[in-house]
Every structure is written in C-alpha cells, then in structure tokens.
Simulated assay, not measured.
Amino acid sequence: MSGTLDRAEAYLDLGRYQQAAALASQHLAQQPDDASALLVLARCQRHLEDLPAGLASVDQALRITPDAPFAWMLRADTLSRMGRHHEAVAAAQRCVEYGPLFWWSHHTLALVLERSGNGALRRDGYAAALRATELGPQEASAHFMLGLIAHRLGDHRTARAAYGTTLRLDPQSSEAHNNLAMLDQRRSWSSRRAWSRAAEGFVTSASLDVEDTHARFNLEGMAWGVAASARWCAFAGMAVALVSTQGGRSGGQDGGGPAGPLVGALLLVLMWGAWFLWQRSRMTPRVRRTMALVARGCPPVLVMAAAVALPALHSLVTVVSAVALPAVDTGVLAACAGLLFWNLILTYWISRVFLGRRAPGRRARRGAGGPG
C-alpha cells in the first residue's frame, strides 16, 4: 500500500487535493496507524479548507508520533487559520522544541505570531523569522516572513533587503513584488522614480497572481491618485478661464478683442499638457495599459475622473464662447463653475471613502506559508 501513499503525495504536489485525499484515506483504511498518511490527509484537508477535519487528522498523527515537528507545524498552522491563536502559538513552540534546527520550525512560530495580530508579540516573531533565515538562507519563504514582520515594525530598510532576497530566490513571488512596491509607494510623493517602481511592482504582482486582490487594490489606489491629482489643474483651469474671458467679453465695447480668451486658452493647453507629460513620464506603456484596465472596473476612479473632466470641459467652453458667443451671460458660467468646484471637492472625499471600502480584508498571504 506504500504505492498508494506515494501516488497521494504526487497528487498533493500537483494540487489535486481531492484525489490525494481519496488515496490517503484508502491507504489509511488498511493502515489506520500510519502517521505519515494521516499528515498527507491533513495537508489535503487544509488545502480544501476543511480545517476541523485537518486538525483531527493531525491530532491523530500526534497521538502516534507525539514528537514529530512537522506534525506540530501542521497543527500550529491549522489552529492559526481557525483563529485559535493562543493554541497555535503553543503548538508552534512545541514545533521549535522538537525541531530546533529546522528553518521551518522557527518560520512557523514567526507566522503564527504574526497572524495573531498581537503587536506585543511581533518582536518575538521577528526573532523567530531571523533565526529561520539563518537556518534556511536559501528559503524564499523565510526571507519573505522576515521582510513582512520588519515591514509591520516600521523597519523598512530590513524589509526592503528581505524582500529583495526573496525575489532573488523566487522571482515569481507576487507577494514580495507587491510588498516591495508598497515600500516604494511610501516615497512616491518625494520621488518620481519611487512612484514608477511602485506602479511596476503592483503590475508585476497582479500579473503573477490574478487572484491577488491586494495588488489590484493597490493599482486602483494609484489610478485614483492619478485622477485626483488632476483636480488642481481643473481648479486652476476654471479660474484662468473665468479671469481671461472677462476682458474678452468686454472687448466688444472697448476694442480689446479676443486677446484675453486666447491667452487663457494657451494657458489651459500648457497647464494640461504639462500635467499629461508629467504623468506619461512616470508610467511605462505596460503600466498605462494595466492601470487603464483596472480603472475601468473601479467606480471610485471613474467617478473621480468624471468629476475632473467636467471642470476641464467647462474651462474649454468658457474660453471658446468668449470668442464665438460673446453675448453669453458670464454670470451663468460663473455659477456653473461654482457648482463644479464644490462637486469636485465632495467627489474627492466621497470617492476616497468608497475606494477604501474596496480594500481586501486582512488575510494570510500564501507566500508566508511554510512547507505545504
């Protein structure tokens, strides 16, 4: 029956968890005290989100081999996923006790301490993660966990170095790309290159894992930020249009001509052109395409963009009408400008709130997991 268990492990490695669980159960029907088969079954049940059954399988394996560190690791991870964090930490400590020289023992302790959400224990998690990297210097998961905890502790230099090591060992780690981009995003206000690197990182993370809602949300936030940054051009554009057309509209009486509106139109073109070129310089074509696709499916971004577009259109109509339709009442245009001004301010804050509500819930990241 060892062949049956070997096939179950092969299916497990391929991600075919239902078939693996069926074969492990078949093997256990003949050999119910095989701890290895129970652990294979527990791993399948964990991947299938049947956590109570997985915990029962692990506990049965521990009754047979109570000093098996891998079984304690599975128990700690399963309890942590179930929200039983105090028991998970105790199991992880037993894992370290029975396997002090295994990197994944210390990684498991760091993982469950981080998942517990207890900030007071985060320093202990950092120490465990650091020990895991010492024992497993070529393990990407160990370095990612160190970076994650350092990130949460505000040690951005250590976090950046750890994420960089993670990507050197595993260039396909979407979580490391995403978190490294988040570090760059913090510096985006003072560095154009940091903003560009953040955008590239989020795009790469989203392309590597299409189910990663964190990277998509971060891209939505950046797209919203691009649209929101244009509000200053919109405000200034309305002011330029209204001021420059006052002389143009009175030009019919005092002979001033359309010089004022033409100057205003030139200022509008220069202002919006500069904004467009600035944004274009920050984004590669790949980032522009991805951000446009993300923006189409994000109502807060679309609403913010529309709120900016309306004042821009108002500015254009104001300067054109000053030349072509000088009889148009300036009071009407000024009243419209006032409405659009307040609409833009309200839209900015309301869309920001609704964008925040789209943030994915706090969840354990797959890249932070230990051996499957």
Rank of each mutant, 00 (worst) to 15 (best):
A10S: 15
A309W: 01
R122I: 04
W272E: 02
L39P: 01
G372S: 13
P32E: 08
L268D: 00
W278C: 00
D34G: 12
D6G: 10
Q60E: 14
A92Y: 06
W232C: 00
W275R: 09
A364K: 03
S321D: 15
L12S: 01
T65P: 00
Q18K: 07
Q18W: 08
A42M: 01
D6Q: 15
R16D: 12
A227L: 01
H143P: 05
I350K: 06
A10I: 13
A22L: 14
D124T: 13
I345E: 08
C336W: 12
R157M: 07
L339R: 05
Q138D: 15
A56K: 11
E200T: 11
D67F: 08
L113S: 06
S2E: 15
L38A: 11
W104T: 04
R160N: 09
P326E: 09
L208Y: 12
R187A: 12
G125F: 04
A76N: 03
E114F: 13
G119Q: 14
R193P: 00
S2Q: 15
T284L: 10
L180M: 13
A181T: 07
T78L: 14
G248F: 05
Q246R: 14
V319W: 03
F144S: 02
A92G: 09
S207D: 15
D184Q: 11
W232R: 11
Q60R: 15
R186L: 12
L180W: 01
A29K: 15
A199M: 09
L219E: 04
L148E: 12
A223V: 02
G15E: 07
A42F: 06
Q138T: 12
P100V: 04
R7M: 14
L302F: 01
G369K: 03
L62A: 04
G367F: 10
R231T: 03
V319Q: 06
H106R: 07
D212Q: 13
R157W: 06
L344S: 01
E49F: 13
A181K: 09
L270G: 10
R197F: 07
V303Q: 10
N178Q: 11
W72T: 01
Q279Y: 03
P171W: 09
D59Y: 01
S190Q: 14
G83K: 08
